[in-house]
Simulated assay, not measured.
Amino acid sequence: MSVGTESLVTVTATINGEPRTFTVPGHRTLLDALRSELGLTGTKSSCTEGECGACTVMLDGHAVNSCLVLAAEVDGHEVLTVEGVSVDGGTDLQQAFLEHGAVQCGFCIPGQVMSAEYLLSRNPDPSVQEIRDAMSGNLCRCASYNRIVEAVRQTATKRVSTRG
Rank of each mutant, 00 (worst) to 15 (best):
G61L: 10
T23L: 06
T43S: 13
Q95D: 09
A96L: 02
V74H: 07
G164F: 11
S121L: 05
G89D: 01
G101C: 09
A102P: 00
T5Y: 04
G4T: 07
V64M: 13
A96Y: 03
C140P: 11
N123G: 00
R159T: 08
F97C: 04
G39Q: 06
T48S: 11
L120Y: 14
I148V: 05
E78A: 15
D60I: 03
G4H: 04
C47E: 05
D133E: 15
D92H: 11
V79A: 05
C142P: 09
S86R: 15
H62R: 13
T23R: 12
S121T: 13
A96R: 07
E51A: 14
A54S: 15
L8H: 14
D133Q: 13
G4R: 01
G106K: 13
V3D: 09
L70H: 02
E130D: 11
A13E: 06
V149G: 00
N65L: 07
S136Q: 01
R122H: 11
I15F: 08
E73Q: 15
A151L: 03
L119A: 06
K158T: 13
R122F: 00
G84F: 12
V79D: 08
S36Y: 05
T29F: 05
L80K: 12
G164S: 14
A156K: 05
G76Y: 13
R28W: 10
A71R: 00
N16Q: 11
S46Q: 10
N16E: 04
L40E: 07
R153C: 01
L8A: 12
L120R: 10
G39I: 00
N65R: 14
F107I: 11
S127H: 07
H100R: 14
E18Q: 14
N146A: 13
S121K: 09
T43Q: 08
A96W: 01
T157C: 00
T29W: 03
P126V: 01
L68D: 00
L93P: 07
D125C: 03
R28E: 14
C140A: 09
A71V: 09
G90E: 06
L120G: 10
T157I: 10
H77Q: 15
C140F: 02
C55T: 08
P126T: 06
E130A: 10
V113W: 07
K158L: 12
G42D: 02
L120P: 12
V152R: 04
E130K: 02
V11I: 10
